[in-house]
Design a protein around this nucleic acid. Structure first.
Lengths: 207, 207
DNA sequence: ACATCTATGTATACGCTGTCAACATTGCTG
DNA sequence: CAGCAATGTTGACAGCGTATACATAGATGT
């Protein structure tokens, strides 16, 4: 009953199938053109079947955004782990991972941050907490860097916000197409994001 | 025939009225929920009337985004002008103006950068050129700061991209609601963006 | 001044969308 | 094995973007 979807009345794992198919669809057409009915067709069920698993279109989008935040947390944490004991390098690689993930999933990134999700009517705790996890890693990283005497002794939240903003801005500019020609390719992006963050480390002013 | 819209067959200035009303609508409901038909109703015309002035819904959105980029260019340039001869202060104030404008117009900002506009099918030169104007001001500013020996002698485009990313990221995080509680109020934002940018100037690392 | 052309607005229709309500099927539980 | 809860289907509805055909009016050339 789990494998073949076309033969049984009950699908078996519609929930998961819907999310996977939705991600694919959003990748293809962008979050704006994504429709529930097309999703249902792609999953091989009737156009109201998704409502047994998600209250809303919005709820479905929230679920997808959550998976996005989860992989974001994983990737950045993974990147940081590889340079344990070197906070500066950790910060840079975390940022690079952030931007690279955004470049690999521009449409999902837009879904996560672009205003497609109606925050008013969504459970919100869920989404917020998963997003916070990603931020918390950054905070920890900076805290340890401060204690090692490498990072400036400013308010931790401020330092975290600055690095997050920098990386997030670069990611959004890339996924939004504002940097056409400047940063399209994968390796360009890696290089660029590393440079930009080094700049944040060292500062723009002449010393 | 210009004033009273309900009495004449021809509206007189539908084009302008539509854009103004659309901005209002988007402010109210967000770019996602905005609809052409509701706009037409609000403007007091039939639901196909807008097609005499805009090829598409997309074309209308592009026009609105353009006005957004224009005021962005104005505001940032204006902010920079007030501190002519002090590139560091200019850079900071430009950024503050950027973030403040985004905070004042979160929905329009999302429209401009969030992926609501279909870049494939839009004239694109228009939108790109207006967006470039805003960026060009930043480039000039940095160039002059480099020549005064205040800014680090890195590639200008890199410095510009870094500052743009920082400011843009902060703006997007705020408008996206990711910073609830941290930066909601107007003065908080002014303060925060100035601090964050100072950090970019001075660098995160201990010297 | 008047005929005509063009710009602008309307009416109607189509297929697509999200969502609700009523019904059908299935697997689980007592 | 009876019945209940979970899951899927059908049909309907209003709202959406947009194409087509038509109506009106302002501008233009004679």
């Amino acid at each position: 009953m789990n494998k073949r979807s076309g033969e049984t009345y009950h699908h078996g794992n519609l929930h998961g199938t819907l999310i996977a198919a939705a991600i694919e669809l959003i990748r293809d057409k962008g979050p704006n053109a994504f429709s529930l009915r097309e999703l249902a067709k792609k999953a091989g069920v009737s156009h109201t079947a998704p409502y047994r698993h998600f209250k809303d279109k919005n709820a479905l989008l929230v679920a997808i955004a959550e998976t996005g935040f989860k992989t974001l947390t994983e990737r950045t944490r993974n990147a940081a782990m590889q340079f344990d004991g070197d906070p500066k390098r950790q910060l840079i690689e975390t940022g690079v991972a952030y931007v690279e993930l955004a470049l690999d999933n521009p449409e999902i990134t837009q879904l996560m941050f672009g205003g497609f999700i109606d925050m008013e009517k969504c459970p919100k705790e869920n989404l917020d907490s998963t997003a916070d996890n990603a931020f918390q890693g950054l905070v920890n990283l900076i805290e340890s860097g401060k204690q090692s005497g490498i990072f400036r002794n400013e308010e931790t939240e401020l330092l975290a916000l600055a690095t997050w903003s920098m990386v997030h801005g670069l990611a959004m500019l890339i996924t939004g197409g504002q940097l056409c020609g400047i940063a399209d390719e994968q390796d360009q992006v890696r290089n660029l994001s590393a440079k930009v963050e080094s700049l944040l480390m060292e500062g723009i002013l002449v010393r």
